Computed example of a mutant assay.
Amino acid sequence: MATLMLALNPGSFDEVAAVLADSPDVCRTHYGHDSCECAARAVRDVLLAEHPDVFNRLSKRRT
């Protein structure tokens, strides 16, 4: 879940912390490592490749 959230909104450790009921610092430490950042970027790239408008559609749902 956290990797997908970071793929959608890179650097959103506060949101990840809220969902995981943890602190932003712990999430940043755990998910901010290169491997997780790379995984989040890879997920984002795949989502964009398969569904180029996915982020536009998700943004519309939030409002």
Rank of each mutant, 00 (worst) to 15 (best):
L4K: 08
L4M: 15
L4V: 15
M5A: 08
L6C: 00
L6S: 00
A7P: 00
A7T: 01
A7R: 02
A7I: 02
L8F: 13
L8I: 13
N9I: 12
N9Y: 13
N9G: 11
P10N: 05
P10V: 03
P10W: 03
G11A: 06
G11F: 05
G11R: 03
S12C: 13
S12Y: 07
S12E: 12
F13M: 10
F13E: 04
D14F: 06
D14E: 14
D14I: 10
E15D: 13
E15H: 07
E15R: 08
V16S: 01
A17Y: 01
A17I: 05
A17E: 02
A17C: 06
A17G: 05
A18L: 11
A18W: 04
V19Q: 12
L20F: 07
A21N: 12
D22S: 13
D22A: 12
D22E: 13
S23M: 07
S23V: 09
P24D: 07
P24Q: 07
P24R: 06
D25P: 04
D25F: 08
C27P: 03
C27I: 12
C27D: 05
R28N: 07
R28S: 09
T29V: 11
H30M: 10
Y31D: 00
Y31L: 08
Y31F: 14
Y31H: 09
Y31R: 04
G32T: 06
G32R: 04
G32I: 04
G32Q: 03
G32Y: 02
H33T: 12
H33A: 11
D34L: 11
S35R: 12
S35F: 11
S35N: 11
S35G: 12
C36I: 11
E37R: 10
E37H: 05
C38R: 15
C38S: 15
C38K: 15
C38N: 15
C38Y: 13
A39G: 08
A39Y: 01
R41P: 04
R41F: 08
A42K: 10
V43S: 00
R44H: 06
R44W: 00
D45T: 12
L47F: 01
L47M: 07
L47D: 00
A49V: 03
A49I: 01
E50C: 14
E50K: 13
E50P: 04
E50V: 15
E50W: 10
H51R: 15
H51P: 00
D53A: 13
D53H: 10
D53M: 09
V54M: 08
V54R: 05
F55T: 00
F55G: 00
N56D: 15
N56L: 15
N56E: 15
R57W: 07
R57I: 10
